[in-house]
Design a protein around this nucleic acid. Structure first.
Lengths: 206, 206
DNA sequence: GTCTATATCCAGATAGAC
DNA sequence: GTCTATCTGGATATAGAC
């Protein structure tokens, strides 16, 4: 009897990708060697290369896997909501929730941006576009103030969400120190979201 | 006659640091080898190690040099300005100008953050603190709305500045495409600043 | 202070057995 | 599909001449 039955290529691939997501997001492409990855998976380096052909291949697979998770987020949010403010709140909360649950994705996007690959995260821009178009429609219809450009307004909100999602751990540690708990962090995030929503209301005069 | 006179340790060090700033900010610590740096400087690798002892030593020196440039920015801005709005405008414009003129610094901070070193950029936090305290004072004095927490308000503005400084090149290329010129970019930045200032006015009811 | 030569190690990738 | 053994190049760092 051979050990054939524990050979499962697809399961191995999934395991490699999952581990690679974690390592690449922590240390970036250049900070992770195939050996690191192999050790973390409990597999051999050559096996990994057998499945993904090259180190770049692994990274591509990771990126694709993350985009898969990234895309459906947006689908849900752009069903037509009648109420503009609810629509905005829905999107803002969705973005925070996504980054909270998938911190890896944001980090990987940041590594990518620093490395000058900005092409393969296609949905992010589409997201901005759809948000802006919805705002613009409301402006054209005279529902909200036109003192702000819809485009810049989207960037402003995006910046707030980004910085929070990237750095709130630092903020929290600074502010709370020993008292840092998940509950406290969640509450702080909720407060920050309330600030953003108030900002939206006041600036767009909703 | 020897070639003693072209030996100038300090000048060499400066040259190495300046080149290293550029390379590290472009490709990150792991993306730059001592050989790359040596070639870019027109020097030998061992000479670089002679001056800085190790690759980490080079990076530390680069970070220190950038902090040197970083600090005076803030000094200027925190002389007491009587008018709160002018004070805020001064700071906002200062931050944009700094990032425009020193894109390297922001990139290096971002590499550092991803790599988990968040200690050695001390002034950034101090900056936030002083800004927030000034806001809080105005709130306590009843000069502005207290609907926003000064702390979160600082983060909101910081996020806008950050995202713009990091990604406006992408935005601009997307929007303007072939028409991308320095003048157009400057105009867009000025418009974005105006948006931020309007946001400040409207939210703080100044 | 600056170089060449070199030591040592670790990277990505391949060959080939099982 | 998975492993061990290995190739080749490039990494940091040192030794020692000038």
């Amino acid at each position: 009897m051979t050990n054939t039955r524990i050979r499962d290529g697809e399961a191995t691939k999934r395991k490699i990708i999952k581990t690679a997501e974690k390592l690449f997001s922590e240390k970036g492409f250049n900070g992770v060697s195939i050996r690191d990855l192999a050790n973390a998976c409990g597999l051999s380096g050559p096996l990994i290369l057998h499945h993904f052909k090259s180190k770049d291949g692994i990274y591509e697979a990771v990126r694709l896997a993350l985009i898969e998770k990234y895309v459906p987020l947006f689908k849900n949010h752009f069903d037509d909501e009648d109420d503009l403010f609810k629509f905005i709140e829905y999107i803002v909360r969705g973005a925070f929730a996504f980054h909270r649950e998938n911190p890896i994705t944001l980090r990987l996007m940041n590594w990518d941006r620093l490395n000058g690959f900005n092409k393969p995260w296609p949905k992010s821009e589409e997201f901005h576009q759809m948000f802006v178009e919805r705002l613009q429609k409301a402006m054209d219809a005279g529902e909200i103030s036109t003192d702000f450009s819809a485009d810049y307004f989207g960037i402003m909100i995006g910046g707030m969400i980004h910085l929070w999602s990237e750095e709130h751990d630092c903020f929290m540690l600074d502010c709370l120190g020993e008292n840092y708990t998940k509950a406290a962090a969640d509450e702080a995030e909720e407060q920050f979201i309330q600030h953003i929503l108030l900002f939206v209301k006041r600036c767009l005069k909703i």
